[in-house]
Amino acid sequence: MNPITLSMFTTALLSGTLITLSSTNWLMAWMGLEINTMAIIPIIARKHHPRATEAATKYFLIQAPAAATILFCAITNAWMTGQWEINQMSTDLPIILILISLAFKMGMAPVHSWLPDVLQGLDLMTGLVLSTWQKLAPFYLILQLHSTHSLTLILLGTMSILVGGWGGLNQTQTRKILAYSSITHMGWMLVILQFSPELTLMTFTLYVTMTLPVFMILHQNNTLSINKLPILATHTPTISALIPLLLLSLGGLPPLTGFIPKWLIIQKMSHLGLFGLATITALSGLFSLYFYLRLSYISSITMSPSSNLTTATWRLTPNSIPLGLKTTIVPSMMLLPLTPMINSLLL
């Protein structure tokens, strides 16, 4: 794609989300969402490839009716109460319908099945945008609506954690596994949303920090399915040593960054006496831990059978690690000692 065109669409993508983030009115929020959708579709379809086109078509056919439903609920609310403000919605049915269609836009559990498909058709950097930046605007709208419909939020959240873990078990494509991992993390955010919105914000930030280097590593080595993961060891040995730690950090094992959100969320739940919910979320996190463990097992703990000549291609053409990867890989593993600072910054 022409760099000028690409920069135009990127600017529209950024400004669409920012319009949604800075609006208090449903109409402006809807416009931001629409600008966002219309800007990312050319970026998705910029490779003239059947899969990319199909992903763009599916993404459009999902996002457009969801946005229309959001606006429909807002207008219904205006007909009933005369109110356009986002945080002053009071009628039950529009709120539930809006929650479901926002979950649809983000790809949360009962309405998630488009997300792995669409991500499968993308190149990994666009996939990174889709699984982080694109979730920001709908999530902000859910944040604005919070604390009114606890049951809907908890159901969406726990189902996302369960389904995200369960669906990822059977996948061999890294992009589909990352999509299911994204569904799981969104589930954690939604479960805690009504009890402590600050924790949600922190989980989102840490999810972005952790998922960024994973996408970048896979993009750098063009690893699209898990049987290409062992090649990492011959191309970039340092990265191959770090990637199990990164993946276990995404899974949420203790000495790594990913443990912070899980720890604080479960602590918050047990403070509030929600032991059943805490148990369910903690146990269904094990499903996703299983597939992260399998990824790290394949990528570095095993050695693929290969001759001596192919084991050290990094000596012949040394691959330099990009700067963005260097800067994100450290916080995505080692932030746990800084938990008190993160706590005091956000909570």
Partner: peptide, 14 residues
């Protein structure tokens, strides 16, 4: 307009 563009793109690729 975007939908029709995607319709054409899908027809060309599929």
């Amino acid at each position: 307009g975007l939908g029709l563009a995607l319709l054409i793109a899908t027809t060309r690729t599929h």
